[in-house]
């Protein structure tokens, strides 16, 4: 067995330190070691996006990143986006617009969408579809996911206008 590494991560604002084999995949670190089970494992070959988290400001498929690569990184998962008393606008929008069914893709979807809206606060439908193309859903046919994200963007924009 390869020797273990001393790893430091910040996950959802909390600092974590532990010893791990370098080959440990970030998704397993989150799910098995830190009990952060929102991100899921779907395809394991970086196609489905169920494991999407934000690493140092980038949307990343955490099944295709070794924990060693993430050493020192800042990681945000669905659990870090909102809280029961203060839901992220996307969390509300997905419920309002029936943007999920079995829920398995949802944490990765919402985490990815949050980054998409950060980078492009006012996307067209086409831009949403293109920007979400790294996340597969088997249940919804995407129509209501797209609708949810557009609704969230509209809400964020009207809030911003109101503040200005």
């Amino acid at each position: 067995m390869a020797k273990k590494m001393h790893i430091k991560l910040t996950v959802n604002g909390q600092e974590e330190e532990f010893l791990a084999e370098p080959r440990e995949l970030l998704i397993h670190t989150l799910r098995e070691r830190l009990n952060i089970t929102g991100p899921h494992i779907g395809c394991e070959t970086s196609h489905c996006g169920a494991c999407t988290v934000t690493v140092n400001g980038k949307s990343v498929k955490s099944c295709t990143m070794f924990v060693a690569q993430a050493d020192g990184a800042d990681v945000t998962t669905i659990e870090g986006l909102g809280s029961p008393d203060n839901l992220h606008v996307l969390q509300r929008a997905f419920k309002e617009n029936h943007g999920l069914q079995c829920g398995f893709c949802t944490p990765g979807m919402i985490t990815r969408a949050s980054k998409l809206l950060e980078e492009n606060p006012n996307p067209t439908e086409e831009e949403v579809r293109f920007g979400m193309a790294g996340n597969l859903c088997r249940c919804t046919g995407y129509q209501n996911i797209v609708k949810s994200i557009l609704a969230a963007a509209a809400e964020l924009n009207s809030a911003k206008e109101a503040a200005e």
């Binding site: 659990e79 997905f94 419920k95 079995c102 949802t106 944490p107 919402i110």
Partner: peptide
């Protein structure tokens, strides 16, 4: 609206 969604949208599903 679906009652299931609260847990799924917050990463609190139990698969």
């Amino acid at each position: 609206k679906r009652v299931e969604d609260a847990r799924f949208t917050q990463g609190k599903g139990n698969y």
